[in-house]
Design a protein around this nucleic acid. Structure first.
Lengths: 236, 236
DNA sequence: TAGTGGTCTAGACCACGGT
DNA sequence: CCGTGGTCTAGACCACTAG
């Protein structure tokens, strides 16, 4: 992905927020200050701030400035972020099935395109644990066509999305989700160490990527008792 | 709310999409065409298209154009849209408790600010039905301070958000949500005509508005068996 | 009144898609 | 090759906030 100027600034500011150089409630430098310190125009600086606002890092107010927001300590923005971005918890991942070529044997709301279904399918299954308690069961399917040599290799930093980005230059560009509350079946209740029939949040996701022919299909089952799924949304 | 140029264009295009002047899969006029036909610059035209993309109406692709997207026929984008925007269903709303001044007696994740808690609280409870089947129980709390004469009046077109917008010029600017799967308790299971213990999707929402001192606190219990909650998200 | 973010103009160059 | 959207510049005026 092209490293544009606004993305560079966005990344710098995000890291500074994450590293605590700007604490919650504090204000980022003003747009004009960012312009002169980074030798860019306001349009570019605003674009970076717009993106940070979309991601929920800041709120902006006319006449005041760009204030760092409290990002709720749920399991983070599940939308397009990876699980590993969840903060403040000891998060562990266990592969129940490592990535391998399998059939498009999925029972999902979002069906693969006919183009995809003619290709090989990569599938993997992971169990996500928080503080050593299994919280989420995750299944993923995607076409093998555009990601050669994907199976057998480890993920970069354990992150699927980072691997796609750094190794294949594929970025997530959007998602569609459907949410259901369902009783746990036998298989899942064993894995999540709960009683069968216990209510779980099922999240069915289709991730779109920068490659229009490549989508990622995921299905999650979440035990939301201790860690509800968080989500934030800002219009302007 | 100020009617800026990009908002005018955004509104025009959105209505044209909703009215079917541009069908799914078709392309909107190019940015340059919109510029000349509306006598604006590309910056302004792009801002309108950016907003439409954020709302999920279009996808844009370099070299091709802005294509009208299929908006899933679940129960719509529950994020910031009202329930009444759900399409393709016979939706009915029953007030269990009409808007009235009550106490801030809520058991929510998102707590009112200390500023809000010193004001009077308006509360109302609604049951939303699809095809005459009760699907969602909804509770809402908000400060009475900035919306004089709210109680006792009917909603415009039955829409709470439309009433806020048209009668008080208050717009929704963002939201935070938390999602949980929970077993139905006695009260809710009666209302939704399901067995006690049946899994429900609980959505706890804090809506932020254009008035920084006014937030809306909502809690929903959804029977997702027939109508899952939909949600889409696009980055650029 | 000074400084902030919100909107807007009139250009420019680039990367991508299809011809 | 041309038209598309993506990025960027260098300005301008406005509305809002706070001292």
């Amino acid at each position: 992905m092209k490293e544009t100027r606004y993305k560079k600034l966005q990344k710098i500011l995000k890291e500074q927020i994450q590293q605590g150089k700007f604490n919650i409630g504090e204000y980022l430098p003003s747009e004009n200050e960012l312009c002169s310190s980074h030798k860019i125009t306001r349009t570019t600086a605003r674009k970076a701030l717009d993106e940070l606002m979309k991601e929920g890092f800041i709120v902006r107010q006319q006449g005041k400035g760009s204030m760092v927001r409290e990002r709720r300590e749920s399991l983070g923005l599940l939308n397009v972020k990876g699980f590993s971005e969840a903060v403040g918890h000891d998060v562990k991942t266990i592969f129940l099935q490592k990535p391998a070529i399998r059939t498009w044997n999925l029972d999902l709301t979002y069906r693969p395109t006919s183009e995809e279904i003619e290709t090989n399918c990569i599938h993997f299954e992971r169990l996500r644990c928080v503080n050593n308690v299994p919280i989420t069961l995750e299944n993923n399917w995607l076409s093998a066509k555009y990601i050669p040599d994907f199976v057998g290799q480890d993920f970069i930093d354990g992150s699927f999305f980072k691997t796609l980005s750094q190794r294949y230059l594929i970025e997530i560009t959007g998602s569609e989700q459907e949410l259901r509350a369902l009783p746990a079946d036998e298989y899942i209740s064993n894995l999540l160490q709960i009683k069968a029939g216990f209510p779980l949040l099922q999240i069915t996701i289709k991730f779109m990527t920068s490659n229009p022919s490549l989508n990622i299909y995921s299905q999650l089952y979440c035990n939301t008792t201790k860690y509800p799924i968080g989500n934030s949304y800002f219009l302007k």
